[in-house]
Design a protein around this nucleic acid. Structure first.
Lengths: 143, 143
DNA sequence: CTACGAACTCAAGTCAACTTGAGGTCAAGC
DNA sequence: GCTTGACCTCAAGTTGACTTGAGTTCGTAG
């Protein structure tokens, strides 16, 4: 049989049952049956949860993730929207790379004050670029 | 003079005054003087805020950021801890790259169901790797 | 010198993403 | 056939990161 008990899903994903119930409540995933009271999920659930986890770590809200993929994990967005998301991601990857480099530089640079090290400043100035609204980092209200 | 008025800081950073006050309240930044009531910051504030923004978008909490850098923006962590953070970041960068690739693939792949496309599944399986506690993505409580 | 606008303080409210608690139910083991 | 452990429901609580509102206080323009 292809159904996966919630306990099994929790074990595989590392998520507690409460989170699974919550995800179902907000329509992010779907349980397909019950065994007694216990939710049973389809075999794709593990992959879906991995996708959600990935999206979360990219800073997408559950709402955004829900808007991207249907309950069964199949993407609902048009091609250009997907490409746009990917572009956002790539921009974010650049920022993280900057931060990673900055951290490594700080770890290794012998300068007494990093704020005065030109190389460090240069790295960080990259970060001040056109900051777009980045989900959980909301822009200030308009003047 | 080297002091920057809060209004100026807000304009440069795009953050509202309330956020600056909040950051000061939790000890993340420091205002160095007042002009009447108005907070004045040191010239490094812009860079510090860029650093904070960068950290946030990497998924660090304000608490973690506060633990990494002193109020003046100078890193407080030992070298190996910094390298460890950079390693985390690099791992996250890989994940985001995976997600970006997956999105682009989905946008372009003609397969009817992406969940069945082996290439898609392969991309996503990368995500199921040893998921470490990822700040805002908390691990489940121990059994 | 008065008016204004913008920051100020402090408490309280908001939102997302979960978790926790009280009380209930079921399948499986003994 | 009864006990038990794990999940169930539903409501309420929690945490992090801010925002909002009421009432106050300045510096600057007029």
């Amino acid at each position: 049989m292809k159904l996966v008990d919630i306990a099994e899903v929790c074990e595989r994903s590392g998520l507690p049952p409460s989170t699974l119930r919550y995800y179902e409540e907000i329509g992010l995933v779907e349980s397909v049956a019950r065994h007694g009271l216990r939710r049973q999920f389809g075999p794709e659930i593990t992959l879906q949860l991995a996708l959600i986890s990935l999206g979360r770590s990219a800073g997408f809200s559950l709402g955004e993730i829900g808007a991207m993929f249907a309950r069964d994990g199949v993407p609902k967005l048009p091609r250009d929207a997907l490409h746009a998301k990917a572009d956002d991601l790539d921009a974010q990857i650049k920022e993280l790379t900057t931060l990673s480099n900055a951290l490594r530089h700080v770890a290794d640079c012998p300068a007494p004050s990093h704020m005065e090290c030109p190389r460090f400043r240069k790295l960080l100035n990259l970060a001040k670029k056109p900051r777009r609204a980045n989900k959980h980092i909301k822009a200030s209200k308009p003047a």
